[in-house]
Amino acid sequence: MAKWGMVIDLEKCVGCQACTIACGMENNRLPGENWQDVIFFTEGTYPSAQLKWFPRPCQHCENPSCMAVCPTGATYKTEDGVVLVDWNKCIGCKYCMVACPYGVRFYTDEKPLIAPDMRKVYPSKDDHSWNPPWKMPDAREDWKHGVGIQPHDVVSKCTFCYHRVSKAPPGTPDLDPQDPKLREFTPACVVTCAPGARFFGDLSNPESNVSRMIGDKRGVRLLDQLGNKPQVYYLTGVGGAVPSNRAIHKKS
């Protein structure tokens, strides 16, 4: 069984947010509710200050704290290493959101981040939280795996496009969007990435391109000191960086 993971080359990433848009369209996200986002931050001070950025999907941790704290088992890890939410079991207690070190979980019923509130513009007449005109085909919707438009009062998150990835031919080492045969199984953010900064493959296969890149280019993980062991690796190279600490300075 594969252990799906992602490698993001920060030297190639241009911070265009195409991945964020592709994810939003593929997964019917509310505007602003970005399962995948590009985070901008600054390092240093004038005149040597630098603007940096890194894309941040769900890290699909090896030891997901969100799963450990879930009181109902709604958050779970699939055999192929993807962390998902079963919307039929989620009670909306938000403990997983509190326990996630990466801020990648979203509660459905909150004040809209961007006006107008699309839930009111496109209200749902059934159990769905809203009814956008650009939604994915109903056949793909799968609440047990947190795929589609979610019901009210549950927590949602990036699924690594589970509706695509789970249908990949068994034994595939890498889901390369350049390969027409594999493109439809590759996560939307990887497919759309114009500079080709994102790679998706089997971390348990030492021959896969993602495993080689992590080894050869010293892949690092976000907040690795917490021990969640993300399955998303970043290649920082010379110019890239992931933030190693928090946003504020204690003494100031």
Partner: peptide
């Protein structure tokens, strides 16, 4: 405060987390 308080009544005992 909970999103689904009634679901909790069965999901927690059955979940055995």
């Amino acid at each position: 405060e909970l999103g689904h308080p009634f679901r909790m009544l069965w999901a927690m005992p059955l979940g055995m987390q």
